[in-house]
Design a protein around this nucleic acid. Structure first.
Lengths: 354, 354
DNA sequence: CTGTTAGCGCATTCAG
DNA sequence: CTGAATGCGCTAACAG
């Protein structure tokens, strides 16, 4: 025989009509107040009598009521969603930055939507479209192309504030970037001070700010030393491990190979080391190596690799702060933040052999 | 004198009343059809005359109309949002898995919300609450505690399908996990075959499936060899680099230190190597080392480190497929997928010294 | 095949 | 301080 009470409705906390979530009306009925009052309670509007508030809270708990974010955004025109676009979010550089941006944004009630573009323009455009449909409140992005018209047009028409990382903005947007020029210059000057003249740099395309800045820093160091740049040693095309691997091998096939190598991107050190291993080049006796971006590999390789590094956590936190500022005051003039670099010396550099 | 045409309304594509996004009604008016027809066009309903469809498409383009995802989910009760919870999104293990799950889900129109829990129960509960309010269609999670009642209660009441990674499910959920038991057993058997008896394992807590499985595999290998396990060499507490670093130092402070070490977690190898460096222990002469999880560090360290590895991309893809299956058929019985491991031998192991 | 109708769940007027 | 009424933008059901 069944328990009699089981026949009564609204007793068991989970007996709201199966499959149906409880709505603000259910709560209102349960608490014997109006929907408006429930809304005031859930949004912490202080103009509600304590005893009413308590009754509502009890009903909320009993029914397991959770306001629908969709319905809320519909009314308030804010989604509390931030879109993030990077080429590959499993790149430790980006995951670290977004990871430290996350809590800053979460504290203000924002949730992150994260997507990878594979550095493809069509994917980026599609992502901006998706984010536009989702009415995100803002987007943090690393663009593959700083001024493709179709992309720019999409961004403009999307209608939300954008924060660009490591890129120059060709439209109204805030920017946060690393001082790759300064970092690279330090690295090259150090190598020059050791006596190197043939210094190779493999890094990303100069179509993009980070590649451009690194190349500029490289040239600045040479020019300050009154030395000519051998263009054959500048390989600015891609930030991938594979590119670094290939180019390192090519560089050492040159009639006059480099005596020092700079990996201008966090993924590239692995490619350089792998190639050097195959080539039988010893660090630092045969070749000095500097990498851009701190990694466990750089720290724990033998010998440990000197790096140009910067504070990724601070980068992420500042990115978040910029985004918040921009969302609060959409009309504020574009801001540019540059995160400084330092050169951390380890065991991978020495004077070149005769 | 101004261009006369600028006075006409609805000419410039971006002249919809400033600040207001165009809605389905605007498009309907522009295309001289009803809102319903616009909806049919945007949702690719084939029952629309080609010429009408074209007119609507033109209006959509002209006004830059993008259907509001919020309004859509309000009607359809589907958000096409997948929530992801991991302890730390910047852990390469998780970012790699989610990264390969992403395109599979995106192909079906899903977008990922990614959040880190810092392995804190309260954060996990808060994230499930957030996801519930956002009405995500499903959640992929790595839980810090497999059976905390408050957490389980929250998950149950949240009302969306959950896919657990690397954990056992104490509720109705699909599970995907790595065969850490098998992998660890292979590793230990290999070390035993080299003559090792004192083999240390540092890994995560046995409160959690992955830690439990690794410990079980370790024991299984010893037991198969008819050898006793020295409990002092089993350190199952945390998956962090710091823990690995500390415990390695402690292990070598033992009266009878281990002759082989296994780092049971992808972050741990760095801690072990760092400690070994400080201790002046040489690999593999003084101590053999095996790590769980492929990393660049393992591959490029000197000597290169043997690892237990598995296919992270496949893991991610299968996770996505499981999630999709579960969302399509919410009532389907729980499924368990186990991803196999292999032992990749490199230069970090040798027979112990006398 | 297309227009009309009726909410989805909520926050915000406006009265009282 | 609280209740009732309204509409955010959209899709599905129903007529025509």
């Amino acid at each position: 025989m069944e328990d009699k009470s089981s026949r009564r409705r609204s007793r068991n906390p989970s007996d709201r009509p199966t499959g149906r979530r409880s709505t603000i009306k259910d709560v209102a009925k349960e608490a014997r107040v109006s929907a408006g009052t429930v809304s005031r309670v859930t949004s912490n509007n202080p103009t509600v009598q304590p005893h009413i508030r308590a009754r509502v809270a009890a009903a909320v708990a009993k029914l397991g009521y959770r306001p629908s974010a969709a319905a809320q955004s519909m009314r308030t025109a804010a989604t509390k969603l931030i879109g993030c676009i990077v080429s590959d979010f499993s790149n430790p550089l980006y995951s670290a930055i977004l990871r430290s941006a996350e809590p800053v944004l979460a504290d203000e009630g924002y949730t992150l939507i994260i997507a990878s573009s594979d550095d493809r323009l069509d994917r980026e455009i599609a992502l901006f479209e998706t984010f536009a449909r989702r009415r995100v409140d803002g987007v943090i992005a690393v663009l593959s192309d700083e001024k493709d018209p179709a992309l720019l047009q999409t961004i403009q028409s999307a209608g939300f504030p954008v924060l660009l990382m490591e890129r120059d903005a060709h439209f109204h947007a805030h920017v946060i970037a690393t001082d790759h020029a300064g970092g690279m210059r330090q690295a090259v000057e150090y190598l020059i001070s050791l006596g190197h003249e043939r210094i190779a740099l493999v890094t990303g395309s100069t179509q993009t700010r980070s590649g451009r800045d690194r190349a500029a820093g490289y040239r600045a160091a040479f020019s300050a030393a009154g030395m000519p740049v051998d263009e054959a040693l500048l390989r600015c095309e891609s930030l991938t491990t594979a590119f670094a691997f290939d180019e390192t091998q090519r560089l050492f096939a040159l009639a006059k190979p480099p005596t020092a190598m700079i990996a201008g991107g966090n993924l590239m050190l692995a490619g350089v080391l792998r190639a050097l291993k195959i080539l039988g080049q010893t660090i630092p006796e045969d070749v000095s190596v500097i990498s851009s971006g701190e990694t466990e590999l750089a720290e724990l390789a033998s010998p440990s690799i000197s790096v140009v590094r910067w504070d990724l956590a601070a980068f992420g936190r500042q990115a978040a702060a910029l985004m918040l500022g921009r969302m609060r005051e959409p009309e504020q003039p574009p801001r540019r933040i540059v995160v400084p670099c330092e050169l951390a010396l380890r065991k991978s550099c020495a004077s070149p052999r005769r």
